[in-house]
Nucleic acid binder design. Sequence first.
DNA 1: ACGAATATATATCAGAATGATATATATTCG
DNA 2: CGAATATATATCATTCTGATATATATTCGT
Lengths: 187, 187
Amino acid sequence: MRVKTLCLGALCLGDATGYDIKKLFENAFNHFHSASFGSIYPSLKKLEEEGHVSHRVEAGEKHPDRKLFRVTDEGRATFLAQLAQTPASEQLRSEFMVLLFFAHLLPTEILQQKLAEMEAHYSQELNYLESLSGCEGHTSGIDFTIGMGKSVLRTKLDYLHHHRETLLASHQNRPDSQNIRQTESSS
Amino acid sequence: MRVKTLCLGALCLGDATGYDIKKLFENAFNHFHSASFGSIYPSLKKLEEEGHVSHRVEAGEKHPDRKLFRVTDEGRATFLAQLAQTPASEQLRSEFMVLLFFAHLLPTEILQQKLAEMEAHYSQELNYLESLSGCEGHTSGIDFTIGMGKSVLRTKLDYLHHHRETLLASHQNRPDSQNIRQTESSS
DNA sequence: ACGAATATATATCAGAATGATATATATTCG
DNA sequence: CGAATATATATCATTCTGATATATATTCGT
């Protein structure tokens, strides 16, 4: 889904600045999507050119230059249509699994360190999602994403705990574990 | 991790063409990474300019124009160093969860359809990973990624099965469910 | 009270990646 | 025997990221 569409959706929840939308992505969308300022601001510009949103400047009050965007009726209709047509899909991008894929090329101590690092990230994200569970005002759909996110993270942590030692043991005994430093050469 | 680095890693497993590398990403990396031809071919070009890989043309045999790439000693060392420095991290991009986040704006039947669609994808990917488990010749690291992938997919399917009906029920009873077609207007 | 760090806020840009498209041959399959 | 699929390389417009620039307000420790 294009960042443009995502911005339009964000504005369907209420008026917001580009900065506000970024914060929404960092908070509510945290565990399943992200977008940078470099895509948000140009998106808002295009949305306005297309008549999907309008903006007024809130100046003077606190900070200057607060461009508060609002979705138009036409923009709202467009978002609804695009949303209904968006296929349900997911794509994981895991540097962690790339590391595991090539783990036989790494020293065991580095592998150990990467596993610990990933575990820490998982725990941190689980904590975050658990803190979100406490909050009120969530729709049932949002609760579903949080609940699913928590279940997945618990599964990942469990998997890590149950297979960590086995992995490390077989990594240390892997064939070629000496060939990392000396590649085919008999120094 | 840059596609350039990923290509270098792929070539550390054996000589390959750009096409072969794409196939590797589609098969072995399937559940945790992807890359398109539009990034692979330019990456190989740059890697060669930098002296990390070399190539020879395999012509005549079957198809013409098979550019078979091979990593140089320097390229292998570079990849090992970059791999060890890569932080363990993961990023999910889920259109499915975006749909759930905005589910209150959709008719219940569409939501139902999206849930079914996602379930089908999960099942399909689980089947694929289970077929990979049967194969031999995997390092312990690769087995770990497959095992973790399977566990996560089973958790997602379980979550879907256990919360589907509850979500659908509360979606049908959500406030504003009539306001989707008629926005504040009393036609 | 003061300086540092952080938060609010917008904007641009180089570099990277996607997804589509073009081109061409070989193989498989009904 | 024609269609579809697989093999193979390459380019390009559009999109996105991550970094950088700019400026003010607030918070926090000392």
